[in-house]
Every structure is written in structure tokens, then in C-alpha cells.
């Protein structure tokens, strides 16, 4: 079963499955304990190390091994966890399990350009105004028409001493938006990297008095980034390419890491994201097998009623035209061969003396003959005429 085509072979929108995009990915932590070694944490001893790799490894949850930051002694107490996802994903949720009392303030950010710029997805705090200058999130979602980074309550401490940070992309999105039809929602859920800023430990209250602080370390495990590899509806899976980069297994005449453009010869109409009801496949140009390249022309596309805008380039086999669908000057269509045949266009072969020119009728192959000359290539004198010695008037009336 091909998820990207129906039983009849017609293209249909398809998407990769929901995965934990962070699984096995390297996590860049701004602080990790064990260097230098302490009694509780030694980075050089696997039994006492707490590296950031534990956040995204597929360990069991019964007795989780946790990443742990250095002991932090004074405000600010920021620690950053960054997970490059390798390519664009469409997020569904982000979660992080804390192994000790969860922080009182956390900011969740995303990048869409592999870490060059960042935008907030959400904030979590017991005091949104003080920590992030934002009001607490309204119960019914964002007030505006589009998604927003809202400030939600900080993760609650669980009876086991830990806690769970859980964020769903729906939390910041107004109800009723549909991913297929909403470009702003598509933008909202798209991320190449996730960053979690742990900005205030649970033990630090409203005061910013560093003197009153007890040394603290953040500790967490099971960082999950639930999402789908972003392929714009044109692939059902992502694979590692020859250079080890995750990339969509593009169908529908598309290419690129996210199937975000049409393949070179598939430019008969503009690229579009597929939806659940329309595949919007890129269509190959119609060049009758006589061209390998084509370009898109928006004006022709509009004039055709948004059906076809491809223009074939470098028509071969003596063909010409937007679709290489007629013969170039000096050639005519051989009616015995299909248009796609390499020899569909035959040379006019007009006689150098009997013909008045070199260009024949493109349909019949008839060359323009001088007076008294006949034949498809003008190579004979007509009945009642005979050959003369003059190349200007090769046939004269028989006396």
C-alpha cells in the first residue's frame, strides 16, 4: 500500500507518522555536572555521570537516569537545553520529566532556521508577569486570531518529588484552525530545533536575593518532542540521505529536505502543499519526449485557466513549440510516426534548383516550387514542361 497514491495510482496527500523527534538526538546543555567531579557527580565515571544524552536516550522509565546541571549558586539561574532535530518537523507536543522538584519558570522556544533565530512557543511560571512580562494564559486560548506563546502555570511537583512539563501546540493555538488550510498554524508548528530555558528553580521564591539562595541543580530525563517529519504532504516517511541527513522521501514530483519544491522537469504548475483532499502534485511538463528541461510561466498558467504553465526548453529532434509539438522550420511532420517519435520531423529536402525556398509546408512537406516544377521536393518538371539549362527557370514549356 502506497500512502501517497490511491489504488488507481492517483496521487493523494500523505504524511509521515508521529515520532519522538528528539529520540537519539544530541542535547546541548549549557550546564552539566561532573566537571570537576564531585561526590555526587563525576562526568568521567559512567556510574556517576549525568550527561545530557540521558535526556533523549531510549532508557527505561522505571528507574530513569537523569541529566543534572552543575550546582547553581547565584541568580540568574538559567540553564539551556537545546535539541537540534536535524530537519523541520511539525510539532504536536513537547514534554520533559523532571527528576527533582520542577523549576518554577521555564521558557520553551523553537527555531525554524537551524538555530539562527528563536521564537517562543510557551512559558511556564508561577508568576508570569514578573518572570516573562506576560499575563497568565486565558482559559479559552489566545485572544487573537492566530497562535501565540502564552504563559501557563509552572509544572506541578509530583508525590515522587519530580514533575512533568507538558506542552501541546494546540495550547497556544485558537480553536478551529486547520493545519491544511491555515498557513499561520503551519508556521506555528514548524521547528528545526527546540530550546528549553530553565530560568528559576522551585526553591527560589519571589525574591531575587542571591544571598538567600541555597545551591540548586536542575535534573531531568525523557525529553520528548512529538511531531511529524515535515514533508508538506508529499512523503510518508523520512530517511537518512547519503550524507547522513534526515530528509523526506519525496513523491508527487517534489524534492528537497521538506519536499518544498517541484523537481526540475515537474514545473507545469506551481508547487503547493498537499492537503487531505487534494494532493497538489507537481506535474511533469508535456514535451512529447523531446526536451529534458522546462520552465514555469505564470502568465501562460493564468491564461490556461490555472491548468498548465510549463514551457519546454531546448526541444530536440527538430521539434519546436511550447510542448515541442510541431516541427521547426525546414522540417515537416511525418504522418506515419507518432509525435513522440525521435524521427517524427523529417527534413523538407527542397530541391536546390526546383524549389523557390528551403521551407516546406509543416504538415504536408510540400516545398514551394518554381513555375513548371512539381513534386513534394520540387525535383521534377510538370507535365507539359521540360528541363532547361537555366537554374533560374529550370522547367520551360515544351515547344
Amino acid at each position: 500500500v502506497d500512502p501517497c497514491h490511491d489504488e488507481g495510482g492517483a496521487p493523494r496527500g500523505c504524511v509521515p507518522g508521529l515520532v519522538n523527534a528528539a529520540l537519539g538526538r544530541e542535547v546541548l546543555a549549557s550546564s552539566t555536572c561532573g566537571r570537576p567531579a564531585t561526590r555526587a557527580c563525576d562526568a568521567s565515571d559512567p556510574r556517576r555521570a549525568h550527561p545530557s544524552a540521558l535526556l533523549t536516550s531510549a532508557g527505561g522509565t522505571a528507574s530513569p537516569l537523569c541529566w543534572r546541571s552543575d550546582l547553581l549558586h547565584r541568580v540568574p539561574l538559567n540553564v539551556t537545553l537545546t535539541v537540534p532535530l536535524g530537519k523541520a518537523f511539525e510539532l504536536v507536543f513537547v514534554s520533559l520529566r523532571f527528576c527533582s522538584a520542577p523549576p518554577a519558570s521555564v521558557a520553551l522556544l523553537k527555531s525554524q532556521d537551524h538555530g539562527r533565530s528563536w521564537a517562543p512557543l510557551g512559558f511556564f511560571s508561577s508568576r508570569c508577569g514578573l518572570d516573562y512580562g506576560r499575563p497568565p494564559a486565558p482559559a479559552d486560548g489566545p485572544a487573537g486570531p492566530g497562535p501565540e506563546a502564552l504563559c501557563f502555570p509552572a509544572p506541578q511537583a509530583q508525590p515522587d518529588g519530580g514533575g512533568l512539563l507538558a506542552f501541546s501546540v494546540q495550547d497556544g493555538s485558537p480553536p478551529g484552525l486547520d493545519l491544511d488550510s491555515s498557513p499561520v498554524l503551519q508556521d506555528w508548528v514548524t521547528a528545526t530545533d527546540i530550546r528549553i530555558l530553565l530560568t528559576r528553580p522551585a526553591s527560589v521564591g519571589d525574591t531575587r536575593d542571591s544571598e538567600a539562595m541555597v545551591p540548586y541543580s536542575y535534573s531531568a530525563t525523557e525529553l520528548q518532542v512529538g511531531g511529524r517529519c515535515k514533508c508538506n504532504g508529499h512523503a510518508s516517511r523520512c530517511l537518512l540521505d547519503t550524507q547522513g541527513h534526515l530528509t523526506c522521501d519525496c513523491r508527487h514530483g517534489t524534492e528537497g529536505p521538506d519536499c518544498g519544491r517541484c523537481k526540475p522537469f515537474y514545473c507545469d504548475r506551481p508547487w503547493q502543499r498537499a492537503t487531505a483532499w487534494e494532493a497538489h502534485a507537481c506535474l511533469a511538463c508535456s514535451c512529447n519526449g523531446h526536451a529534458r528541461r522546462c520552465r514555469f510561466n505564470m502568465e501562460l498558467y493564468r491564461l490556461s485557466g490555472r491548468r498548465s504553465g510549463g514551457v519546454c526548453l531546448n526541444c530536440r529532434h527538430n521539434t519546436a513549440g511550447r510542448h515541442c509539438h510541431y516541427c521547426r522550420e525546414g522540417f515537416y511532420r511525418d504522418p506515419g510516426r507518432p509525435l513522440s517519435d525521435r524521427r517524427a520531423c523529417r527534413a523538407c529536402d527542397c530541391h536546390p534548383v526546383g524549389a523557390a525556398g528551403k521551407t516546406c509546408n509543416q504538415t504536408t512537406g510540400q516545398c514551394p516550387c518554381k513555375d513548371g516544377v512539381t513534386g513534394l521536393t520540387c525535383n521534377r518538371c510538370a507535365p507539359g514542361f521540360q528541363q532547361s539549362r537555366s537554374p533560374v527557370a529550370p522547367c520551360v514549356k515544351t515547344p
Partner: peptide
């Protein structure tokens, strides 16, 4: 009636040297 094809050898190119096709 099928007429013979034009015989290039019969043409006199004396005054039309510039029109003479390359063979």
C-alpha cells in the same frame, strides 16, 4: 505521367555561379 528528376548536370551555371548549390 512521371517526369524524370531534374538533372543537375544539365544546368549552365555560367551566369549564376553565386546561386550554384554545393554538392
Amino acid at each position: 505521367e512521371v517526369m524524370p528528376t531534374l538533372d543537375m548536370a544539365l544546368f549552365d551555371w555560367t551566369d549564376y555561379e553565386d546561386l550554384k548549390p554545393e554538392v
